[in-house]
Amino acid sequence: MEFVVFWVPAVLAVGCGALVFRFDSMARATFSLLASLLCTGGLVVLLGLDYLGVVVVLMMTLEMSVMAVFMVMYMMNPAGLTPMTMTHNTRAAAVVCGLLFALLAAGILSAPWPDRRGRPPDDPTLDLGMSLMGPQMLTMMTLAMALFATIVATVVLATRRGRYDRLGDGLRARRADDPVPGGVGR
């Protein structure tokens, strides 16, 4: 039973990942990648890390759905109605990948791995929360502020209209001049 529960998502994850490069359609490629990531989330659950696995499923679903919009927007031939390829410079890429794989495999096989000490905690979710929010609270707060500042900065840089367009040069307009009427306070 455990054999099936591991190998089915494992094979599906790798298979769907490979299919991303076979599909012509951006929609198919995006959701093939999502299927691969969902299977990976299932494997994380199998490791006993239920919370992380479910969060992987949640985050990847939302993220890949939004990603589909961008894939369709920026890639040529989004609907895949004519053939296209997702791979470029295949020969050099194959050589680089082969070398990297050999290097990593040699490292894995030759490294002196330590024996396991201790045992897994009763509640991995609690331990995860404690290790993130306990001693690393300052790191997490800084990280959160940095991420939030990045989001705000990106939106400010990306938007064509600022507050002076909305409320006039002195910011004194009583009604904001927005391209979409309605909304909060108007």
Partner: peptide, 11 residues
């Protein structure tokens, strides 16, 4: 009654 039921429902 999963230990992370609320997150599961959301996912």
């Amino acid at each position: 009654d999963l230990p992370e039921g609320v997150v599961w429902y959301n996912a």
